[in-house]
């Protein structure tokens, strides 16, 4: 079974009478352990796809299976649980809680999980260690550099030991040096078996991955890893 299976997916936005197609005829699969980039210019539909993959939005037509199940197989509460347990998110704008320590930011997904509180500290410290920020535990998010902030966000995505991490332009707000460091961190995580799906419009960022699915105008233009 594939971790992610997308079949003839379509997404159309309706605004009154006008229909704007965002995605058309999208089909691909992703296996456990892959590091794939979804690449394309802005407006190509890659963010729309990520929303659907992250169970944050529903497609208009076609199928999306995550672990062999579609969004319709779950209740709203279960969808929240799937997002919490099986998926990790890294955003372009970091989205850390302001005036809150690194420790608390990374712990955030755990408070929404069913994991016992006695395990929280251990999991949090492990995730922070994995991104190399153990020396910054009690710093507030506002005291960190951009690169460090994104590391905190990656640790936060890791803390629940998810099956996949969705990273939406994780280097978009960083200088090229910090960006490269972040990509290196992601690659290291992948080498340890972490599945990562990256969204980017930059070729050199996409080149860190093993596979590039190139989007244009809502369609897959080419897929370097297509069987």
């Amino acid at each position: 079974m594939f971790l992610i299976e997308v079949k003839d997916l379509e997404k159309t936005y309706y605004d009154g009478q006008t229909a704007t197609p965002a995605l058309r005829d999208i089909s691909f699969t992703i296996n456990q352990g892959e590091f794939a980039a979804i690449m394309g210019p802005s407006g190509s539909g890659k963010s729309t796809l990520l929303h659907i993959l992250g169970f944050l939005d529903k497609q208009t037509a076609g199928d999306y299976f995550f672990n062999g199940k579609t969004m319709n197989d779950y209740s709203k509460k279960e969808i929240a649980q799937v997002r919490n347990k099986k998926m990790g998110f890294v955003f372009q704008a970091f989205n850390l809680l302001a005036r809150t320590s690194v420790l608390e930011n990374v712990r955030l997904p755990l408070i929404y999980s069913e994991i016992k509180e006695s395990f929280w500290d251990n999991l949090t410290l492990k995730a922070i260690e994995a991104v190399g920020l153990s020396h910054r535990l009690n710093h507030l998010s506002s005291q960190l550099s951009g690169g460090e902030k994104q590391r905190v966000a990656i640790a936060r995505a890791l803390v629940n030991n998810p099956q996949v991490i969705f990273a939406d332009e994780p280097t978009g707000n960083l200088d090229s040096k910090s960006g490269k460091a972040i990509m290196e961190t992601l690659r290291q995580l992948n080498l340890k078996g972490q599945t990562i799906i990256l969204i980017t419009h930059e070729k050199e960022i996409a080149d860190y991955t093993q596979r590039i699915i190139f989007f244009r105008d809502g369609r897959i233009e080419r897929d370097s890893g297509a069987a």
């Binding site: 709203k76 929240a80 997002r83 919490n84 998110f89 989205n95 809680l97 955030l108 997904p109 929404y112």
Partner: peptide
């Protein structure tokens, strides 16, 4: 809005 969206993306339910 962002904080709320983030919490939801990380697994918070509407009830939470």
């Amino acid at each position: 809005t962002k904080e709320i969206g983030l919490r939801k993306a990380l697994g918070a339910t509407n009830k939470d």
